[in-house]
Amino acid sequence: MRYEAPRAIEEAVALLADAEGDAHVLAGGTDLLVLLRAGLVTPALVVDIKHIEEMCEIAQADGGFRIGAAVTGAEFGEHAELKRAWPGVVEAMELVGSTQIQGRATAGGNLCNASPAADCVPAMIAAGATCTIAGPAGRREMAVEDIATGPGETVLGKGEIVVDFLLPPRPPRSADAYLRLIPRTEMDIAVVGAGVNLTLDDDGLCKDARVALCAIAPRVLRVAEVADALIGSAIDDAALELAAAAARAACQPIDDKRGTVEYRTKIAGVLVRRAALIAKQRAGNGS
């Protein structure tokens, strides 16, 4: 196994593009090292991206945020402005693993691992985040929701890596929230997760909404029907029930050791309702 730690994105792209055999990107390693130790992957090349400065910073740009793909959960949590603008994105990232894992685990890794239960992804999708993809043909931008195509599968081609996430500027009276259900309080994988991002108008009605759910389908889903149920409402009980029903209708989960179809479907409704209420309260307070 060959290990490389390039200093520039172009260098990383070239290494991956030219690799013969199985090549893997190493960010925090919280997924890759587990697979390695279990003998489930045997890479010929591992490209460590943590020495590329651009991938390790959070920058405020054009009224929004640019977050490097190798930024860790702990760094999300310690960034006061990011936390104020995107509390849901930050709380989602901070739910990954445990305190120790937070020091390693990255948002880019969480996205590219393409788990249907990835915690930070629904929050990013709800936020309307895009990411920059660098590859042999140059750079392109893509919506976060379009990256994963199925469990462990992404649109990334040979030599392509996710460089960063771009969070858009925030209109006034906007906030987001992420909730997940696990049997424990930490060190677990979402049975269901729900990210809700809202903008309220001056009367407190929901002007805009984006909602995404995880662990209820082969990939994290943006569910427009849930958002539609909230938009134009005061996010009252009636709207929340419609949103919950839309969330349940969108579920295509599986039965496994972590949850049943029936349970996941019910919980999707519960979490959408609760996350929407938290986002509403945050948006109202933030005005």
């Binding site: 424990r184 060190m187 677990d188």
Partner: peptide, 12 residues
């Protein structure tokens, strides 16, 4: 494994 064999963690 301890991920899916859920002994309580301290915060539980």
């Amino acid at each position: 494994g301890f991920l899916d064999y859920r002994i309580p963690v301290a915060s539980d």
